[in-house]
Amino acid sequence: MSDDQIPLKDATQNSASVKNAVFTSIIRNSFGLGLFAVFTVGLISITWILTQEKIQTQVRAYEARALMEILPQKTHDNVLVDSKTTLEPSRLLSSQTTTEAYVALNNGEVSAVILPVIAPDGYNGRIDLLVGIKRDGSLAGVRAVTHKETPGLGDKINTNVSDWILSFAGKSLNQPTAEGWSVKKDGGDFDQFTGATITPRAVVAAVHRALTYFETHQKHLLNPRNIQQHSISEEPSHDQ
């Protein structure tokens, strides 16, 4: 039907009922929509409750796997993921906010730490690294966590592309000497990759700074009392 055929008088008389109908429709639809919202939220909540525990363990296992690559389980007797110590922002780590280092314990004594380090001068921006340093100041290992380096060139810092980053293990602040802490092209001891100098240069410099940081902050890092336990449950976790 078309409105213009209804006489004006009728239209005004009907306006109240039209208004009513609109209201009922709005209320009905809102309720409907609300009901569906409740249903869908319920569905998500149920899934969340059912999966939450599993997700927690997965996240921790993933984090732990990266740490374990640097410090295998036999080097420590605590749960690495749960033992962290807070670090103040530092120029040496290129960190602008507080960060957290993982601490490995062996018989109550700190045996190694894993520092989060940023190499700000990669070819395409910052490279996030994890640098594992043993109690004696030698490197346990270095891993690149996230980066945007060019595929095929700078991404050789990934362990699945190249073994390059494994070559840090065993090195320390004096081994090689300060001059040696650069890529071969700059007269240092570290290989660059073919076709890329910037990325390895940035990583080598960042690792060197991390070692310097370790030396100046040894007291704090090696004190077991600075560790905050971040256990998600009261009981010791079984999955480690």
Partner: peptide, 9 residues
């Protein structure tokens, strides 16, 4: 983009 190493040598 495929062979950056060879193409920048």
């Amino acid at each position: 983009i495929s062979f950056p190493q060879e193409m920048t040598s």
